[in-house]
């Protein structure tokens, strides 16, 4: 007993100075932040762009300098572009995508849940969805314009269709992921069909539904900008298109930057929404 204690003391004094910290060996990406590397890469790209533009390696008409793009951004922010302010362009795009997203969620979630629960609903809705979902939305944009005109309706209808399928499919997958034990537990606690749906099925499917909404926003945003390039009088895609007609490359760059910033904002917003709505995701 005393011997063991003595040895331990010895070891402790020897190691107290600088204990060697160890970790389990692991395969693949090592732990730790990649932030410094990412920042350095970003700075390098910016520097490369500046050098290439400054030295006129590429004709100036095709590649403005970073400073010129920044100036163009400020002037668009202050004075607007192509008969509308920046706020009106961004607002027009946001209105389209949010109206379409709202319609797609309101229709898609209940239909998806129903398809996960009912053989008839699945049979009826599966056929049209499986047919149109693989189509690139721009393929039926001309049809939308012929049917619904060049205004907002055709663009919102196009976006709704593009966003509807991923939401339906994810809601359906969400229902399938509900564990039978959880359902049995609720039934043995006296749940009715409706209570089962509200208290068990819907919350269980919620993480998958939110993933579907996130995918839908990505698909929708890409479709929207492309549709605005083709047929619009306002919106971020239209801003880029009209700038390109005048070879205003700096404005095109600004437009691309805005599109990227918005897409990033959507992803961030969805993450916040997930953290708030499904804090249990990934827990046990």
């Amino acid at each position: 007993m005393t011997d063991v204690a003595a040895t331990q003391n010895l070891e402790q004094t020897a190691e107290a100075a600088a204990p060697k910290l160890v970790k389990m060996r692991r395969f693949g990406l090592e732990a730790g932040s990649t932030l410094p590397v990412s920042v350095a890469t970003g700075a390098a790209i910016l520097a490369l762009w500046w050098i290439v533009a400054q030295l006129r390696i590429v004709p100036h008409l095709f590649l403005p300098t970073p400073m010129e793009v920044a100036n163009a951004a400020i002037s668009i922010y202050q004075d607007g572009y192509a008969n509308a302010s920046l706020f009106e362009h961004v607002g027009a795009s946001f209105l389209r995508i949010f109206v379409a997203a709202a319609i797609a969620v309101v229709l898609g979630v209940p239909i998806g849940l129903l398809m996960g629960l009912n053989k008839w609903a699945k049979g009826v809705f599966d056929t049209p969805i499986e047919f149109y979902w693989p189509l690139p939305p721009l393929a039926y944009l001309p049809l939308m314009i012929i049917w619904l005109g060049i205004g907002e309706t055709s663009k919102i209808a196009l976006l709704t269709l593009a966003m509807f399928a991923p939401i339906v499919l994810s809601a359906q997958a969400g229902v399938r992921s509900v564990s039978q034990e959880r359902v049995n537990a609720a039934l043995s606690l006296g749940a009715t069909r409706f209570q089962l749906l509200r208290e068990i099925v819907l919350p269980s499917a919620l993480p998958e539904i939110l993933t579907g909404v996130r995918i839908a926003l990505g698909v929708g945003w890409g479709t929207l900008v492309a549709a605005e390039l083709i047929a619009a009088t306002r919106g971020i895609g239209y801003l880029i298109m009209s700038a390109s007609h005048f070879l205003a490359t700096d404005v095109v760059f600004v437009g691309i930057g805005i599109i990227a910033a918005c897409a990033f904002a959507f992803t961030f917003a969805m993450r916040v929404l997930e953290a708030w709505l499904v804090p249990w995701k990934g827990q046990s």
Binding site: E181, R182, G190
Partner: peptide, 28 residues
């Protein structure tokens, strides 16, 4: 609800706290 079942795997609802989980049957 006249037969209470306890499962091997825990079937608690992660979106409800402990007290709400216990009260689930009463809510139903």
């Amino acid at each position: 609800a006249d037969r209470g079942v306890v499962f091997q795997k825990d079937t608690l609802l992660p979106w409800r706290n402990v007290a709400e989980n216990v009260a689930l049957g009463l809510k139903f």
